[in-house]
Computed example of a mutant assay.
Amino acid sequence: MDPKWSGGRSKMISERVREHICLIARTSPADWNIGALSTWSLAKLDAHLVERQVVPRISRETLRRILWEGKVSWQATTTWKAFNEPDFIAKMHRVLALYDTPPADGRVICVDEFGPLNLMPRKGRAWRPAGRPRRVRATYNRSGGVMHMLAALDLATGKIYYRIRQRKRWREFLGLLKTLRDRWPGEKLYVVLDNFSPHKHAEVRTWAADNDVEPVFLPTYGS
């Protein structure tokens, strides 16, 4: 009644070799001067491992399990953006300086937009018969329209001031700036912004220059 389990057969492939396999799997075939391949398949990776004498020929299932146990999975490639402007470093230091040492002659305000905002169905939880979940229609009409939030964060107090509008054009943005200007009269406003086109509209720039408001733009692709 007591079989006295011994733990099964020992692994034929050592941990060091398994780590080596996972390391090779994370490389590109181009790194090995294999020009015809862009990515590894299990069959091609197996053939490469045999050719490099890393392991004798193993089954694809064993190779798949080795990769799974080594936390190497098949994933899609993602992208990221690099800056393409010569003033990237200067703009970055300008913003960080405002954050670290706010100027004594003014107030630092961070402004951004959020939207479109609209009513939409949300999934929830409820008691239902087994195998019959409550269903909510995935498609919906924006019959109530959409709204946008234009918000400003005052770094000195941590308070957020916002307006809800149907559009987020330069007119709505300028209206927000005028509200901020009225809230803190006599103080210079340093407004940190991204490169959204309404922020750079000629009317906005002219008004800001005439009302002691300095737009401070983030570096391109630097959000």
Results as ranks from 00 to 15, higher is better:
L174H: 11
N195V: 07
L180K: 02
H148Q: 07
G131A: 09
L119K: 08
N141V: 13
M120G: 12
D210W: 10
K178S: 10
R107Q: 11
Y140Q: 07
E172S: 07
R205K: 15
E203H: 12
S197E: 12
P129M: 08
V191I: 15
R137V: 14
R142M: 07
L177I: 13
M120Y: 08
Y162T: 05
H148G: 02
K123I: 10
P103R: 02
D210C: 08
A104K: 08
G186Y: 09
D194I: 10
F114A: 12
D112T: 07
F173V: 01
P116G: 02
G186D: 05
V146G: 01
A209L: 08
D154M: 06
R142Y: 04
R167A: 15
E203Q: 14
L117G: 02
L150W: 00
A126V: 14
G124S: 13
P102G: 12
R183N: 02
N195G: 13
R169F: 04
A202S: 12
G158S: 05
R169Q: 06
R165W: 01
S197C: 09
R137D: 10
T157P: 06
F173N: 03
L150F: 04
L189D: 02
E113M: 05
P133D: 05
R107K: 12
S143R: 06
D210Y: 06
H199D: 04
P103C: 08
R125T: 14
G131I: 09
L189C: 11
D194V: 12
R142E: 02
G124E: 03
N118G: 13
E172I: 03
V136E: 01
M147N: 03
R205Q: 15
G186Q: 05
F173L: 05
W184S: 02
A156M: 06
R205S: 13
G144K: 09
K188E: 08
T101K: 11
G115F: 06
W207T: 03
P185D: 03
V146D: 00
L117V: 09
A209D: 10
E113H: 09
R165Q: 13
W170N: 07
M147G: 05
V111K: 01
G131N: 04
A209K: 13
F173A: 03
P133Q: 06
L193R: 00
V136A: 05
M120A: 14
A209E: 14
G186C: 12
K168H: 15
P185N: 03
Q166P: 05
A152V: 09
R165I: 00
L150T: 04
I160F: 13
L153Q: 01
A151Y: 03
H201Y: 05
R122Q: 11
R125I: 13
M149I: 14
E113F: 08
G186I: 10
C110D: 00
R181M: 04
G144M: 07
V111E: 01
P133W: 08
F173D: 00
R171F: 02
V191M: 12
V192N: 00
C110E: 00
V204Q: 11
L155H: 07
G158I: 00
A208T: 15
G158P: 03
H201W: 03
M149H: 00
W207C: 09
